[in-house]
Design a protein around this nucleic acid. Structure first.
Lengths: 352, 352
DNA sequence: TTGTAGGCGTTATCAT
DNA sequence: ATGATAACGCCTACAA
């Protein structure tokens, strides 16, 4: 637990002033190359490490990025975080991570902690409950950049990073229509969140554009968990007229639906064609393999951090655009293929 | 971007000294209750926020815990991290997270960053490559606690948190034997890591105790990825005599094996009974549902943080034990049940 | 119960 | 190319 070595100690050892040591260590141009070498050598020998508090205190920034996420333990979110970590490390930033567990209250508490920790910028994906953005005002009013990703909100000062959820849902629904579905249900999450309301819109517009009736009875809103999927499937099984298509807003819930439907003797896709969202690994495990929307989580995470760092480096409006759209795509597998299904054995047709 | 409010500003406003403000804000017992109330009221109005650098600089600790993890985006690790975040938030600590991507070099770089960031303690799960612990010496020699979890290493000064991998593997293998398997293969990861070498031992001892031959030909060591599982299965398919049992060290790889075997017309469990490890959600999606060892990731994460915080709070050796063992259990599903399998329809017998 | 003074380690400013 | 000095905001002896 010995005392830490400071630049003063090095200064004494080398016979220079602390100022020069500081400069040498920071590779300041106005320092003699030889001096630099000597200083860094001695620093190494003495076991010096820079004191980031002191430096932060002086410089007024932390090189730390705060991340607020609804839940850490979903395949999608952990992929996003993984991408963020990569970009942050490359850019010389640390990541402080906290989860709101889908509650507004926790999200507010997290924001306060991040604020007090003086993160240089904030990356947020909103909880289910969040309906106002007051808790981000302290950041915004001080010019600390806040970037929303995935579950975003409209805000003058904030960039949003999303995929085109409306279009993705439109394509998914259209695909079901092409497969001959005329009675398509949609299971999705809290409509406060753009990701779900946009997907609902995409679903709706696709129906309308295909001259199919849009019916609110065909929408189920739940929390998209495994249990919710089972319940939704049970609910569907009780309907007098079964749907012939099902578009679900995440894969966990979609898979759970498929399992429950199959157990009840319903055939997927022959009776009901199913599409999920996210392209989680389970898509290629469930039988039939699940058609899903590929969501580039890792890229989104990387991009969010890079965009933030750009802003922090003063590229004031390098990315002037208020919203960044990432490309997504429909990955078609057996669960939605009514036409080509006859005689095919599951598992042979699955793309990697 | 206006200047931050400091305790001096509040002091001026309230007509007290900065000292008193500091004490009031920290709920120091020697401060008048009325004073405290007034101070916190004014602080709120003025938009004061504590400056953690300054505080840290003074107090010599950061209330930050460093976490180094091989990969963020695995179901198991994200569950662990989720548990850590929960416990850290409860304890008033922040989490700084970085991933080694299974390389020693990144792990060393991460350790250095953590060290320079002056984390109060470090939580580590080792990369595949790591074979010495030099890079943690700076922490240890300064009394900064380092706790290993899951992928651990022996070290005088460090606590390890693990499950009993040997026993878990022993049970899994014994279960296969009970099901009538006599030629059991084992697929596992880099044997440098305790988790894999211990599982190998458990597998071996179970065979020996059951008077079955242990044969190195029956061991496949790979990186346990999806691709590796496919390759391993291909390799198995080429063997002159197929095994009748297969124990795989993670679920991703096990599931990939099962898929490949099924595609080749091999029946699971009738021809080959299979057991995985971790009890990831996919276990309940693959058909047949996969028998696996339940690994309490969230609990492990919580425990790791709690143990660390205890240490930091000076419970010098409150947990004197050098190794903490968590309970795990074998979750039996269809993929390993040779006996009960006749006539059963997949998916009906699966426990939740 | 409150106040004074000094220092935590670094870096920016202004000299030299 | 190098140095002296002050300041970042907070906390803690010690004093009153």
């Amino acid at each position: 637990m010995g005392k830490d070595i400071t630049i003063y100690d090095i200064a004494k050892e080398v016979g220079l002033s602390p100022t020069t040591i500081s400069r040498a260590l920071n590779d300041h141009p106005a320092v003699n190359l030889k001096t630099k070498q000597r200083v860094s050598e001695v620093a190494g020998q003495m076991g010096y490490r820079t004191n980031l508090f002191a430096s932060n205190l002086r410089r007024q920034h932390t090189h730390t990025i705060g991340v607020i996420v609804p839940r850490l333990n979903s395949p999608f979110m952990s992929t996003v975080i993984s991408g963020m970590e990569k970009a942050a490390t490359e850019g010389g930033y640390n990541l402080i991570i906290s989860q709101s567990l889908e509650t507004l209250q926790k999200e507010q508490a997290n924001a306060k902690t991040m604020f007090d920790s003086r993160v240089d910028g904030l990356l947020v994906s909103l909880s289910y409950e969040t309906d106002d953005l007051h808790h981000f005002e302290p950041f915004i009013s001080r010019g600390i950049p806040v970037i929303f990703y995935d579950r975003v909100a409209e805000h003058e000062q904030c960039t949003s990073i999303v995929i085109d959820n409306l279009q993705a849902a439109y394509k998914a629904t259209s695909h079901l229509v092409e497969q001959g579905c005329t009675n398509i249900m949609h299971i999705t999450g809290n409509l406060k969140r753009n990701v779900y309301s946009d997907r609902l819109k995409g679903y709706k517009y696709a129906l309308i554009d295909n001259n199919l009736p849009y019916n609110e009875q065909n929408i189920i809103v739940n929390n998209l968990s495994e249990e919710a999927g089972e319940e939704a499937a049970q609910q569907i099984l009780k309907m007098k007229k079964l749907p012939d298509g099902l578009f679900v807003s995440n894969d966990t819930c979609a898979v759970s639906c498929v399992k429950t439907l199959k157990q009840a003797g319903i055939s997927v896709p022959a009776d009901v064609a199913v599409i999920g969202f996210n392209n989680d690994p389970i898509c290629r495990v469930i039988e039939p393999n699940l058609t899903s929307v590929n969501y580039p989580g890792s890229e989104m995470g990387e991009l969010a951090v890079k965009a933030l760092i750009l802003r922090l480096n003063g590229s004031t409006e390098g990315i002037a655009s208020n919203t960044i759209n990432l490309r997504s795509e429909l990955i078609i597998r057996e669960s939605s293929l009514k036409s080509k299904v006859a005689g095919k054995k599951w598992g042979q047709l699955a793309p990697k």
